[in-house]
Design a protein around this nucleic acid. Sequence first.
DNA 1: CGCTGCGTTGAGCTTCTTCAACGATCGTGG
DNA 2: CCACGATCGTTGAAGAAGCTCAACGCAGCG
Lengths: 227, 227
Amino acid sequence: MKIIEHLKITPLFQGLTAEELDELAMILTDQEFKRGQTIFSEGDAGLGFYVVVSGLVKIYKLSLDGKEQILHIFEAGEPFAEAAVFAGVSFPAHALALKNSRVFFFPRTSFIEVIKNHPTLAMNMMAALSMRLKKFAHMIEALSLKEVPGRLASHILYLYDQQDDSDEVDLKIAKNHVASLLGTIPETLSRILTKMQKQELIRSSGSTIIILDHDGLEDLAAGERRL
Amino acid sequence: MKIIEHLKITPLFQGLTAEELDELAMILTDQEFKRGQTIFSEGDAGLGFYVVVSGLVKIYKLSLDGKEQILHIFEAGEPFAEAAVFAGVSFPAHALALKNSRVFFFPRTSFIEVIKNHPTLAMNMMAALSMRLKKFAHMIEALSLKEVPGRLASHILYLYDQQDDSDEVDLKIAKNHVASLLGTIPETLSRILTKMQKQELIRSSGSTIIILDHDGLEDLAAGERRL
DNA sequence: CGCTGCGTTGAGCTTCTTCAACGATCGTGG
DNA sequence: CCACGATCGTTGAAGAAGCTCAACGCAGCG
């Protein structure tokens, strides 16, 4: 698949003319990362941002004693590390490929030149940044106001909305990572999944969750019920 | 003080020409809120964004059982609720005036017209959104990877950096609110402040903290030490 | 076949919250 | 100016939630 084709289906670049897409294609670098490979580390100079073409990328923070908090998991079509470009700072987190991944890299200075002259792109970028902020606000709320069962229920329902149709939801990442995304540890996650099964809220096998009691999960997510 | 004067010293509007500032002045509404008054509530339609002219505004989330998590405290010159404008969604949190406050309100549609034609403003806005994201990422990291003493130490040092010069730091908001900002409750905060005093890390009287042991606080903030 | 990473379960412990009581402070109205 | 209520702040005792440590099963893969 050609570069332009990929750009065309990237939400961030919707509404751009063929010329604008060409301009972007001129400045980007096509990069490959193997599963487990680091894309950048916290503190690295933010010389540009990325768009995932294929694969899966996690953005995460580490504490001194090695505990990990995942901030994002990005799939094909999603940009990441854009904030570093505009804030003009170093990356505030680590990025690692969870699967073999292909990404486009847009160098900071060239991209700024492009975006200055293309209001549509700027509007798209502001919308993308705003959605990120909303997601983060939601995460802060979850971490501070909800207990782990609530966060998990909320996450399962979020996945359900994303992957519409059936009651069968795919976690898409290892339970390990789900724990880190929810701000807890694998042991706690495991225990809570077991409890949820005992209460007939879900059925879990491998990385597939079958939702048995929708309303029950909603109540948990809202904090109106406990396990 | 005239509206234009206020706009001129607002960081978000730095680098704009006099004509651009005039355009902005044309579309804004000048509003006053008394201490304790709600500016908007979670779920309200995001019809525009605000800039604090004077006073103090808190942005916060509430849980069902009434616990509060503060996302931001904004002072003069800072914009808030910009994300709702570009994401085109309802406000994801509540806003309330902590002191009698004056704010400028910029209606969504008019502002979008302006920003489309003024790249400098767009760049400033992207920078502002990016700084917000960075702050949120930091908050998520703190909530998930640090314990309360670490978060408090980190917050004190943050204030210290903001209010340069002396070792005397002003919390600027009630301890109540500090607790909510750090994702904990007043009781816990109080106990930890007491412990920090006993260990000669700080001296606390009212809303003023005197830093006695800088390195000790750094170590706490980094998680290399406990109380 | 054995290794490594993932997942589960149990026991004990730490941290934080909850509940309750009480003192201090501040602003307001009498 | 004082009295009052409201908000804020502190301290104690008990309980809950989640983390640590440890052991073990299981699967995938070289």
